[in-house]
Write a protein that binds this DNA or RNA. Structure first.
Lengths: 210, 210
DNA sequence: TAGATTGTTAATCGATTAACAATC
DNA sequence: TAGATTGTTAATCGATTAACAATC
């Protein structure tokens, strides 16, 4: 059984979704097996790194054969928790919050949107994907009835920290943060920042220095 | 003059926007100077790393004093190219494309939206921030009249690679890619991927393994 | 001046790559 | 079987951290 004994490094974890995408693609193209060498050429990695990465979780290959695409896909799916799925709520139904709510891809990947919360009365009551946008004050009651794994934070910077605190108080264990704020959270809360401004600035730098 | 002789590593570049954010914050709070030690505590880095990072660009501090916030802010701004600014176009005016178009923050950071392009006739002709959404076929002519540095790609995965090629053919030097596709580009084109699905999957992993 | 703090060189740590025995 | 390819151990590379002379 692929038991993960020593802590897996961040670098490896960040590559997992990329492996997952490539394997989904191979699967779609009815490719049954793949060697670390072939995969490395497709992905622009070294074969060595691929084997090292997978071996963190026990290794799923077979000498002389390579990896069975279906098996590997399923294993990574399990490692990422996508097989079990996660329930999410969006907090902040502005432009970005609404765009994310409407994004079909997340559901496909096992991230199910269960609720949308806002403070702006003009937006509250509207429906997105058959989910009625509620006032943020209703969140407490909501989490009592529905398991919520992830809060997607698309609120303005000024209220982000406060909202993050509120959310962790409700025992939500993960925050997907789109606000420009950063916050320290208790150790049992996972935060993943999507700083779009940072990302485009890195692009700017690269253009300038090409 | 802070001349950058040897290639600056990716790790450093990715930290620059974060420094920039923290410095903007310090500036806003009328803090005039800061030492690497104090900044390191705020940001959760080591003072050593901060000094190493800045020294890649020549070093902006002074012994016994630390760094002048305003100066450092301006230097990083220059390094990132934010002072000169970048012109952008959005290609794909779906939910995400529209949300990005409406996002005020990018303009503040020197990324000016100049055009929006689509294929869906139902959307074409609408206006966002006083910019009329045009058919993608108008892009060629558009770039003849307006300098475009960055194409923001919010098109479906299936057409992403083709669109990226089109864009580079028009001499646009940077692609901010939100589609799940990946593409190899000529060396003089910079691509920055924002794989939202990857990001939320990493979060899922972390929640599961806390 | 004395204390503080830089920029840089050296040491350490961790991640990537290479090599290879094991084996399908 | 012989060839292919794994998982893993060892070597290398690069990034982070520590130390410290220089100096404001």
């Amino acid at each position: 059984m692929p038991v993960q004994n020593k802590k897996v490094s961040d670098a490896v974890i960040k590559r997992l979704p990329r492996y997952f995408r490539y394997l989904a693609d191979l699967k779609e193209n009815n490719i049954l097996r793949i060697s670390s060498k072939t995969l490395s050429e497709k992905m622009g990695l070294t074969a060595s790194q691929i084997r090292q990465d997978f071996s963190c979780f026990g290794g799923f290959g077979q000498q002389g054969y390579g990896y069975n695409v279906e098996t590997l896909y399923n294993e990574i799916k399990k490692i990422l928790g996508v097989d079990k799925g996660f329930n999410t709520v969006i907090i902040g139904a502005g432009n970005l919050g609404q765009a994310i709510a409407k994004h079909a891809k997340f559901a496909e990947r096992g991230f199910l949107l269960k609720g949308i919360f806002e403070v702006d009365e003009k937006i509250i009551g509207q429906k997105i994907k058959n989910i009625k946008i509620q006032h943020i004050s209703k969140l407490d009651e909501f989490v009592k009835n529905t398991r919520v794994d992830i809060a997607i934070l698309t609120v303005p910077r000024e209220v982000a920290a406060k909202t993050a605190e509120k959310v962790t108080g409700l025992r939500i264990k993960g925050i997907w943060n789109f606000s420009a704020a950063e916050f320290d959270m208790p150790d049992d809360v996972a935060v993943e920042n999507v700083h779009l401004s940072d990302s485009i600035m890195v692009l700017g730098y690269r253009i300038k220095n090409k």
